[in-house]
């Protein structure tokens, strides 16, 4: 009887949809849901390189929020880098996209490619090049600052403020092109007739930007800023490579210790996997809250 039912199920074509979605479902269960569940489990334990040691309940979370001196600092560092590293990009990307959208500009494709190149370059390569630029004694930047501008050399990677500046410069350089292309795609969906009508009404280019372009680009700005908030809290490779790996803990004053960096160091350098999982889930909550706030601000006038 069961066999007959199974055959009917197969022959009726009801099985086909399940087979078609099974690659995703299986991948999601194995590589998505299971690791998430595993990390929640780990976050309730003292879980070291030797495996689970003792059940701690919410202790890992409580300690991170109360007594751990690095977690709050790392959140602050991530927030600062999110503003000046991830957020600042948009102030460059939007004008660049508007300029590139002007069909009278020659070599638009060349500029698009040039701006996009840093995005597809390996982060490690970028950081290695920037670390030579930033080298305190032999770097080009300090050579110009000292020999051309006559100023004192800057300790780009050994002092607190310059560390954040140097990471922000790198992030801006790397991601401005990516955001420019996203905005460019958004601009191309704006109806040309709106600009023609504005011109007939005597609106200047600047007035057109503020009255037509930016309001209609708002959904794209919301999308890219959301990505920037998420990306801002995932900054890891840049400070990790630039500041000398886990052992340096983000450099003097832990100025480059982002939340993702602290998570990775806690897990993979100090062998505290339970605590690292707790950091990951706290970061998840912070990113969710930031995005809810962002959505409320952007849509406050609707």
């Amino acid at each position: 009887m069961k066999l007959v039912k199974s055959r009917l199920f197969v022959n009726s074509g009801k099985l086909a949809p399940y087979i078609f979605i099974s690659p995703f479902i299986i991948s999601f269960l194995v590589f998505g849901l299971y690791p998430m569940g595993y990390s929640i489990t780990m976050s309730f334990w003292k879980w070291t390189a030797g495996g689970p040691q003792e059940f701690r309940g919410f202790d890992n979370f409580v300690k991170l929020l109360t007594s751990d001196p690095y977690f709050k600092l790392s959140l602050w560092n991530s927030f600062v880098l999110m503003i000046f590293g991830s957020g600042l990009q948009h102030l460059f990307a939007i004008p660049l996209a508007i300029i590139l959208d002007d069909k009278s500009i020659k070599g638009r494709d060349f500029f698009k490619l040039t701006f996009f190149l840093p995005y597809i370059t390996s982060v490690v390569s970028i950081v290695l090049i920037f670390s030579q630029l930033y080298d305190e004694n032999y770097g080009w930047l300090n050579y110009i600052i000292v020999n051309v501008l006559g100023q004192d050399k800057v300790r780009w990677v050994t002092e607190s403020v310059p560390i954040k500046t140097s990471i922000s410069i790198m992030l801006n350089w790397q991601f401005i092109g990516w955001n420019t292309l996203i905005y460019l795609a958004g601009l191309q969906s704006i109806d040309e007739s709106l600009y023609e009508a504005a011109e007939i009404d005597g609106a200047t280019k600047i007035q057109q930007v503020f009255s037509i372009t930016l309001p209609l680009l708002k959904p794209v700005i919301f999308f890219t800023l959301t990505l920037s908030i998420i990306g801002g809290f995932q900054i890891f490779e840049q400070p990790f490579v630039l500041l000398g790996g886990y052992e340096k803990m983000g450099g003097p004053g832990n100025a480059g210790l982002t939340s993702a960096f602290y998570l990775m160091a806690t897990g993979f350098s100090y062998g505290r996997y339970g605590k690292a999982s707790a950091i990951a889930w706290l970061m998840f909550i912070v990113v969710i809250v930031m995005n809810i706030l962002h959505k409320k601000i952007v849509h406050s006038d609707e």
Binding site: Y34, G37, I40, T41, F44, W45, G51, P52
Partner: peptide, 18 residues
């Protein structure tokens, strides 16, 4: 499903050692 995975894991590691 997530709650199920966490519950199963907590049961597996309930003795605190691997």
């Amino acid at each position: 499903l997530l709650i199920l995975v966490v519950s199963v894991n907590l049961l597996i590691y309930g003795n605190g050692t691997n």
